[in-house]
Amino acid sequence: MGERVRFELEGEFVELNQLLKLVGLCDSGGAGKALVAAGEVRVDGAVELRKTCKIRGGQRVECAGVVIEVVPGGSG
């Protein structure tokens, strides 16, 4: 299995393309949108084609062999 990354939300959700940028899988939100549009991103195991899909705590995003575990913020 690939690398695992834990991402703590700062708000209620993060847009999918921004999440990819924030964890370093791409250089910009636009590049994140391109990854999503190409069908390279899975959310909770299913291919996600909505570039600005709202990702909330408890969801799992997979891209380029990296698994991003999204956790709710405010725990510290």
Score class of each variant (00 low, 15 high):
I55H: 01
K33W: 04
L20R: 04
E40N: 03
G29T: 05
R6G: 09
L16G: 07
R60Q: 12
R56N: 04
Q59D: 05
F13P: 04
E69K: 00
E48C: 13
V14Y: 03
D44Q: 13
R56P: 05
L22Y: 08
G24V: 10
C63A: 15
A37S: 15
G45C: 03
L25T: 02
Q59A: 05
G57D: 00
N17L: 01
V70P: 01
F7Y: 15
P72H: 07
V36W: 01
A64E: 10
R6Q: 13
E48I: 02
L35C: 09
L16R: 01
G57F: 12
T52K: 03
A34D: 10
L19V: 02
V23E: 00
E62G: 05
L35D: 07
G24W: 11
D27Q: 13
R6F: 10
G58E: 05
E69V: 07
L16I: 02
L9Q: 06
G32D: 04
C53N: 03
V14I: 15
E40D: 12
L16K: 03
G45M: 05
G32N: 00
G2E: 15
R6C: 09
M1N: 10
N17A: 08
A38L: 12
R56Q: 08
V47D: 09
C26A: 08
G73Q: 05
G29A: 07
S28K: 04
C53Y: 10
V70W: 05
K33N: 15
L9Y: 10
E62I: 02
V70D: 03
E8K: 15
K54W: 06
G74K: 11
G76T: 11
V61G: 10
T52V: 07
V66F: 13
K51V: 08
